[in-house]
């Protein structure tokens, strides 16, 4: 048993701590914590078989009936309750004075003058309510991290993780088309179009419908299509895990920094030097276009990374 020397800890700092941790890890690792993606333990298989037998017996059918009737009851009850109260709400489409209030008028009146965005919705989500959007791009980020945590295969050189990776790759290749001429030719035409269209939506977010999220998704879809047709070998040349990490972290950091700058200067009454520019130009609207591009990069990379992780557990 490795003994902890209190003094060494303080003298040598974090490295000694990490070394000791590794020794502890070897001792405390429970057997179940290893075996990431193996088939279940024999005992589990036995249980599974038992459950399977039970599930085809009578008990299952009764349970099914209970579930079904309960679902119908809850669904009908909930909907009826909600609808009966919704009928009391102000009528849809009418000029409801409650919702069409000074705030929405303000957005339409001041949106263009303040943000320089012809598309008022972009002005709202990136400027007036930029804090929500900052949170939202972090939702995407946290989702990407969680999926990485769940699905990324171990990257080590030990035989076990190498086997896991090889197996994932083999199965991916087995179930995906290879060298499909029709697909490949279609994609040769479609993928550049999609990517150009995505970039257009992204860059024009403040002038026409669209913006970071939709543009980024279209970009990601273009990449995914390319991946489907030509496989990981081709996309891996320009897009691997390091690129993903660098682009996402960089774009998020840029986004957070610029929003932080705008918020702090705004709250403290300091002039931030970002004017709306000439209305309708592509380079107008202060930070709107760079922010759209940053969001679009995060979204596009995240979408592609999610798809790649689902397919073979790595980028």
């Amino acid at each position: 048993m490795a003994r902890i020397d209190w003094r060494r800890w303080i003298e040598e700092g974090g490295d000694a701590l990490d070394r000791d941790m590794r020794t502890f890890q070897a001792i405390t690792e429970a057997p179940e914590e290893r075996d990431p993606f193996e088939l279940p333990h024999p005992r589990e298989r036995l249980t599974y078989a038992r459950f399977h037998r039970w599930s085809h017996s009578k008990g299952e059918r009764i349970l099914k009936v209970i579930y079904f009737s309960l679902s119908v009851l809850i669904c009908l009850g909930l909907s009826a309750l909600l609808i009966s109260t919704a009928l009391d709400l102000p009528q849809f489409g009418a000029d409801a004075e409650l919702i069409d209030n000074d705030i929405s008028t303000f957005y339409v009146e001041e949106g263009l003058r303040h943000t320089g965005a012809m598309n008022i919705i972009t002005g709202i989500i990136l400027d007036f309510r930029g804090f929500d959007t900052l949170g939202e791009s972090h939702v995407l980020f946290v989702a990407a991290c969680t999926v990485l945590m769940l699905l990324r295969l171990p990257g080590g050189d030990d035989p076990e993780s190498q086997l896991a990776r090889r197996r994932a790759e083999a199965f991916d290749r087995h179930f995906e088309p290879r060298g499909d001429v029709i697909l490949a030719n279609c994609v040769r035409v479609l993928a550049p179009l999609l990517i150009v269209f995505g970039a257009y939506i992204l860059l024009n977010g403040h002038l026409s419908p669209g913006g970071g999220f939709s543009g980024g998704t279209v970009l990601g879809a273009g990449l995914i299509l390319y991946l489907c047709a030509f496989g990981f070998a081709r996309t891996g040349r320009f897009f691997n895990f390091k690129v993903f990490r660098a682009v996402t972290s960089g774009a998020l950091a840029f986004y957070a920094l610029s929003k932080g700058y705008v918020f702090i200067t705004g709250a403290n009454g300091i002039e931030n030097g970002l004017g709306p520019g000439v209305y309708g130009r592509i380079l107008s609207g202060g930070l709107l276009m760079p922010l759209s591009v940053a969001v679009g990069l995060v979204v596009g990379c995240t979408m592609y990374a999610l798809y790649a992780l689902f397919r073979k557990g790595d980028l």
């Binding site: 919705i121 709202i124 989500i125 995407l140 969680t146």
Partner: peptide, 21 residues
């Protein structure tokens, strides 16, 4: 009114992240 559309735009991206997880 532009505000609901802005809110929904935020919400759609939240729900696709959760779906992926």
């Amino acid at each position: 009114n532009p505000l609901p559309a802005g809110l929904v735009l935020t919400g759609i991206v939240v729900s696709v992240s959760v779906t992926a997880i």
